Amino acid sequence: MDASPSPAAPPSAGPAPVPGHQGLPPVFPPAPVPASRLRRIATPAAVLAVVVGAFGYVGSVDPNEPGHYPVCPLLRFTGIYCPGCGGLRSAHAFAHGDIAAALGSNALAVIGYAAFAVLWVLWAVRAASGRPLRFEPKPVHWWGIGAVLLIFTVVRNLPFGSTLAP
């Protein structure tokens, strides 16, 4: 019995080249198989199902009754309404079709619901037709959203903006 190591096989450089092609990749690779329409809209449909489920839960478990949801930490420790304060009450009213109460609880959240609905419809239509949704906000857009949230927070905590407080 010989204890010497056996010579190692040379590493493989990939699949064997096709005779006459010198190992080059094909000029025209095979076209990708298009996904079915049902498969393309599966992700938007799943997102919608999660959102509808969340609204269904908030619609059935009343946030106006204490003990069902945690208290906003910023409101609890400082007494200042954050941009999300009243969002659950707004979602509860929205789920019950009471748009006026939803706006009274958190107007910015209702605008967010509308923005989500528009973006979701755009996403679903583009997915059904096989086109990707190109939503690439620039830094100025993110700064604008941050400024709107900051202004909304400041105004709803001032005496003249008490109509925006939940």
Results as ranks from 00 to 15, higher is better:
144 G>L: 12
66 P>T: 06
31 A>W: 13
62 D>R: 02
108 L>R: 01
55 F>M: 15
148 V>W: 04
166 P>K: 10
60 S>T: 14
38 L>V: 15
1 M>H: 12
72 C>D: 14
13 A>P: 10
23 G>D: 01
163 T>L: 14
151 I>R: 00
135 F>K: 05
158 L>I: 02
40 R>D: 09
133 L>A: 13
16 A>R: 14
35 A>W: 05
32 P>G: 05
55 F>G: 15
164 L>D: 03
97 G>P: 13
2 D>K: 08
25 P>T: 02
106 N>S: 03
106 N>I: 07
118 V>M: 07
161 G>C: 08
159 P>Y: 09
73 P>T: 05
110 V>R: 01
57 Y>E: 11
100 A>P: 09
110 V>P: 00
120 W>F: 08
131 R>C: 02
154 V>M: 01
166 P>I: 10
17 P>N: 02
94 F>Q: 00
50 V>M: 02
29 P>N: 03
21 H>P: 05
38 L>C: 11
153 T>N: 04
83 P>T: 06
64 N>E: 10
153 T>K: 04
156 R>I: 06
79 G>A: 03
68 H>C: 05
108 L>V: 04
54 A>H: 10
29 P>A: 00
145 I>G: 12
24 L>I: 08
105 S>D: 08
2 D>M: 05
78 T>N: 01
36 S>T: 14
105 S>P: 01
124 A>N: 04
39 R>T: 09
63 P>Y: 11
2 D>W: 08
27 V>S: 15
67 G>V: 03
60 S>V: 08
20 G>Y: 05
99 I>L: 08
163 T>Q: 15
108 L>P: 03
77 F>Y: 15
33 V>S: 13
125 V>L: 15
101 A>T: 14
43 T>M: 08
159 P>E: 07
152 F>Y: 15
157 N>W: 03
26 P>T: 12
69 Y>I: 01
28 F>Q: 13
116 F>T: 04
71 V>L: 00
65 E>Q: 15
157 N>E: 01
140 V>G: 02
101 A>R: 09
123 W>F: 07
142 W>K: 10
157 N>S: 02
1 M>Y: 13
23 G>W: 00
34 P>L: 09
78 T>Y: 01
